[in-house]
Amino acid sequence: MIEAIAHTADVRFRISASSLDNLFSEGLRALTGFMNPYWLRASASVEIEIEARDRTSLLIDFLNEALTKSHVRREAYDTIEFHSLEETSLRATLHGAAAESFEEDVKAVTYHEAELVQQDGVWSTMLVLDI
């Protein structure tokens, strides 16, 4: 689930999901949805590998990597195929399509207020995007 929460200057979402991999998917959905790409027909995919200090950093680093790939390759991604998802590392293939441009220029996914927590079987965190 993606919930938009007001932020004076930037963009804030609370994302939640019933599993960790779904939470990563919700994060990607929130990011790509906000960027609002002008999709092209050609499909695209890219492999990524992340190592981070902890689980929260892993999510933020993963989303920033997706953002970087989007800008550098002019692609947008909406699906994650995980090859492994550990506490501080992941390997995955992102699937999507080429993008002609993006309506919103997201500078970065910040670590501000991010904290992955699991409560009553639900994973959640806040995400603040710098725009």
């Binding site: 200090r53 950093s57 933020i60 953002l67 800008h71 500078k107 970065a108 670590y111 501000h112 207020e113």
Partner: peptide
């Protein structure tokens, strides 16, 4: 934007080495 992203990530990993603790990851 990418320079900041790269170096914030790098410093996040380096902080334990220098014994630095901060109230906000950013």
């Amino acid at each position: 934007h990418q320079v900041a992203t790269d170096w914030i990530r790098s410093m996040m990993k380096a902080m334990p080495k220098y014994g630095i603790s901060i109230p906000d990851r950013e």
